[in-house]
Simulated assay, not measured.
Amino acid sequence: MRVHKLTFAALAVAAGLSLTACQSGNDDAAGGQSDPSSTSTSTSTSTPSSATGSSGSSGSSGSSGSTGSGTAGGSGTATGSNANAKVGKCRTADLKITAQDNTIDGDTDGTVVVTFTNDSGKDCTISGYAGVDLQTNAGTTSAQRTGQAATSAVLKNGKSTYFPISYPINNTGGSGVRITGLVVTPPDETNSVTLAWPGAASLPVSDSAGTPVKVGPVGSAGQGG
C-alpha cells in the first residue's frame, strides 16, 4: 500500500508540474502576441511622418509627388508665371505722345512724325495703325491708312516708337484749308489726345473725293523720320 501511495503522490506532483509548465507556455505565447500589436501601432503612428518624407523625397527628385510638386512649384510657378505672362497692350494713359515736323525740302508732300514713348513703368505691346484726325477750319479730316503691313512689338518702358503722317503741301498761293489741331488715338484704343499741329499751316483745297492725308503703321518711321 505504501508503494501505491508513493506512486500516486509522484503522479500528482508530475501532473502539477506539467500543468504549471503548460500555463507558463500559454502565458509566454500570450506575451508574444502583444509584440506585433505594439509594432503595428507604432507603424501606424509613424506612417504620416513616413508618407510626408516620401513625398518630400519624390519632390526633390523631380517626381510628381504632391508635396514635392507643390514645394518645387513654389518658385517654379512664380517664374513660369512671370515668363509666360502676356504683356498688356499699350494704352493711351501709358504713352507720352508728341509730334514733330519732318518734312524734307523738295518733297511734294509734308511729313509729321508722331512719337509714342512708354512711360507707364512697365512694358506693353503695340501694333497696327493709330487713328489720326486733322482738325481744320472746314471740319475734321481723317487720315487714310497707307496699307503697309503692320508689325507687333513690345515697347519697353522708357522706349519710343514712331509713325508718319503725310499730307499735301499747299503751294496754290491761296489760304487753303487751315489746320488747327492733330488728334491721335493709339492702336486698339478709344481714348485720344489732341496735339498742336507741327506741320504746314494748311492743306490745299481739293474737290476730289477721299482724303489726301495718309498715315503709316506704328513702327514704320524711325526717330525723326
Results as ranks from 00 to 15, higher is better:
Ser50Tyr: 11
Thr111Asn: 02
Gln100His: 09
Thr98Phe: 04
Thr115Cys: 03
Ala130Cys: 03
Gly110Trp: 02
Ala150Asp: 15
Gly106Lys: 04
Asp123Val: 05
Ser81Phe: 05
Gln135Arg: 05
Asn137Arg: 01
Gln144Ile: 06
Thr115Asp: 11
Thr136Trp: 07
Gly106Trp: 02
Asn137Glu: 14
Thr115Ala: 12
Ala138Tyr: 06
Asn82Val: 08
Ser120Ala: 15
Thr117Ile: 07
Phe116Asp: 13
Gly110Val: 01
Thr98Asn: 09
Thr71Arg: 04
Ala149Leu: 11
Lys122Pro: 01
Ser57His: 02
Asn84Ser: 12
Asp105Ala: 13
Gly59Lys: 06
Ala72Met: 13
Gly68Met: 07
Ser60Glu: 10
Thr67Lys: 05
Ser64Phe: 09
Thr92Lys: 10
Ile97Pro: 03
Ala150Leu: 05
Thr52Val: 14
Gly53Glu: 14
Gly56Met: 12
Gly131Val: 00
Gly56Tyr: 06
Ser55Leu: 09
Thr77Cys: 06
Ala143Glu: 04
Thr39Val: 02
Val112Met: 05
Thr108Val: 07
Ser54Arg: 06
Cys90Pro: 11
Thr98His: 04
Gly74Gln: 15
Ser46Phe: 01
Gly131Arg: 02
Gly74Trp: 12
Gly68Asp: 08
Gly65Val: 01
Gly121Leu: 10
Gly131Pro: 03
Ser40Asp: 13
Ala99Met: 06
Ala93Asn: 09
Ala130Thr: 03
Lys96Cys: 01
Gly65Met: 03
Leu134Tyr: 00
Phe116Val: 07
Thr41Gln: 12
Gly68Lys: 05
Thr52Gln: 11
Gly121Glu: 13
Thr151Arg: 08
Gly73Tyr: 11
Gly74Thr: 15
Ser63Glu: 13
Thr79Tyr: 07
Ala72Asn: 13
Ile126Lys: 08
Gly88Gln: 14
Gly76Thr: 08
Thr117Asn: 10
Ala99Ile: 03
Ser75Glu: 11
Ala83Leu: 13
Gly73Phe: 11
Gly62Met: 09
Thr140Leu: 00
Gly59Gln: 08
Arg91Pro: 01
Asp101Ser: 08
Ser57Ile: 07
Thr117Asp: 07
Lys86Val: 08
Gly74Glu: 15
Phe116Glu: 10
Ser50Pro: 00
Ser75Lys: 09
Val114Cys: 03
Gly62Thr: 10
Thr92Met: 04
Thr71Trp: 00
Cys90Ala: 11
Gly106Glu: 08
Ala143Arg: 01
Thr43Leu: 14
Thr39Ala: 06
Gly73Leu: 10
Ser81Lys: 09
Ser55Glu: 15
Ala93Tyr: 04
Ser69Trp: 05
Ala150Asn: 10
Gly53Phe: 13
Ser63Arg: 07
Cys90Trp: 06
Ser44Pro: 00
Ser58Gly: 08
Lys96Gln: 15
Gly110Pro: 03
Ser69Leu: 11
Thr146Ala: 04
Thr111Tyr: 09
Ala72Arg: 15
Ala149Tyr: 07
Gly62His: 07
Asn118Leu: 09
Ser57Gln: 01
Asp107Gln: 10
Thr47Phe: 14
Thr92Glu: 09
Thr41Tyr: 12
Lys96Ser: 14
Leu134Pro: 02
Gln148Trp: 11
Thr141Met: 12
Thr52Cys: 02
Gly73Asp: 14
Thr125Gln: 15
Gly65Ser: 15
Gly121Ser: 11
Thr111Glu: 14
Asn137Ile: 06
Ser64Thr: 13
Ser69Arg: 12
Thr141Asn: 04
Gly76Tyr: 10
Val113Asn: 03
Ser46Pro: 01
Ala130Asp: 08
Asn102Leu: 02
Ala143Lys: 01
Thr98Trp: 06
